Amino acid sequence: MARDGARPSYDPAGPDHALRAALQELRTGRWMAMRTLLAETAEWPRWTQRTQVLATAAAGTDVVRAWLAEEPGSAHATVMLARVGVERALRARRERHRRTHELWIEAWDAAQTATVAAPRDPVPWVCLLALAQLDPEQRWEEHRAAPPEPVLPPGPWGLLAEADRRDPFNREAHHRMLQFLYVRGGPGRLTEASGYAQWAAGQAPPGSALHLLPLYVRVERYRRDSGPDAALDLHWVVEEAAREARRALESWFDRTRPGERALPDLNHLAHALWGSLQFREAARVFEAIGPYFTPPPWMYRTPDRERAGEVFTQARDRCRAAAEGSGP
């Protein structure tokens, strides 16, 4: 990483140059680069991440539908159509759009079709999991299945199991489960989410991104309960927070190669280590982040969310100084 203190940038592709090129083509209404990229993507974790980023960019266009019209038998295009449908439905829900229910059903149908077209692919099941958060009252039977442990709440456990069966410990699948628990009706939602994150992390093998789930819940709790505050307050320096950060560092960061780490996970880990005053350890993670950053969680530490990059830079500089011996 450059050591000149350059301003960080947000790029959904991060260091994935092939994905960035496909995104540029997609934004001009062309789909061949996306098709080629996905055909060359062999590992499920990267496939899951790339399809998610591509769908975010494609959701406002008809590019994927044009691809499917040209190649109606393409399983990859069918999965991408489900991805796009889910993104549109979730956006509609956030914007309280009148077509939310209609888009939800369309996305559900597309995801079901994708489970048949790509039976070994975890992404159609991740799509169905993502749509579960549109049913916080758990009216659908598949969203109130019995949990694997009595201490966990009922939820879309069958959908999670299908995703896990195809790609064990799939990162996005478990994050979608966490999002469902955030919106699930009733009191104690964050307590349930925290219990789930601890359970999932405890089941995960070394190197799994699920070891970071407790850090995400801590950020969500801070966002809801504490409000934006740039100071390093007691929410972050308590021993439990420090332990969660150290555990994620040792169980995930120290057990993975650079190309296996998602940028949101790196940013959450750097934020947690910085917040718990473990500056030297955080400096290692900032080094791995490089010139890119993700607005969450930094945006929650300032009243002006547009200044997330400044918070990131200040934290990075503070941790670098400690690592270089000019600070405690």
Rank of each mutant, 00 (worst) to 15 (best):
1 M>D: 09
3 R>D: 14
4 D>R: 13
6 A>M: 04
7 R>G: 00
8 P>I: 06
9 S>G: 14
10 Y>Q: 10
11 D>K: 04
18 A>I: 00
20 R>Y: 00
20 R>K: 09
20 R>G: 05
26 L>D: 12
27 R>S: 03
30 R>D: 11
31 W>G: 07
32 M>R: 13
36 T>Q: 15
38 L>M: 12
40 E>F: 07
40 E>K: 14
53 V>E: 12
53 V>L: 08
54 L>W: 05
56 T>Y: 06
59 A>R: 15
59 A>I: 00
67 W>C: 12
67 W>D: 13
68 L>W: 09
69 A>S: 15
72 P>S: 02
72 P>M: 03
74 S>G: 02
75 A>N: 03
78 T>A: 15
81 L>Q: 13
86 V>P: 02
92 A>V: 09
93 R>H: 13
97 H>D: 14
102 E>C: 03
104 W>L: 03
109 D>Y: 04
110 A>C: 03
111 A>I: 11
113 T>A: 11
114 A>W: 08
117 A>G: 03
117 A>D: 01
126 V>R: 07
130 A>K: 11
132 A>L: 03
141 E>Y: 06
145 A>R: 02
151 V>T: 10
154 P>E: 12
155 G>M: 08
156 P>C: 02
159 L>G: 00
161 A>Q: 11
161 A>P: 00
163 A>Y: 01
164 D>Y: 04
165 R>V: 00
167 D>M: 11
168 P>F: 11
177 M>H: 06
179 Q>L: 07
180 F>W: 11
180 F>Q: 05
181 L>W: 10
182 Y>H: 11
182 Y>E: 07
184 R>C: 09
186 G>N: 05
187 P>A: 15
191 T>Q: 13
192 E>G: 00
193 A>C: 06
193 A>V: 02
196 Y>M: 01
197 A>W: 06
201 A>T: 03
202 G>M: 02
203 Q>A: 08
211 H>E: 03
218 R>Q: 11
224 R>N: 05
228 P>W: 09
232 L>M: 06
233 D>C: 07
238 V>W: 13
239 E>T: 10
239 E>P: 04
243 R>M: 01
245 A>F: 06
246 R>N: 04
249 L>C: 06
252 W>P: 01
256 T>Q: 12
256 T>E: 07
264 P>N: 04
276 S>A: 15
285 V>Y: 09
285 V>K: 10
288 A>H: 02
291 P>R: 14
297 P>N: 14
297 P>M: 13
299 M>C: 11
300 Y>D: 14
305 R>G: 09
309 G>P: 12
310 E>N: 10
312 F>C: 11
314 Q>M: 12
319 C>T: 03
320 R>I: 01
320 R>Y: 07
328 P>C: 06
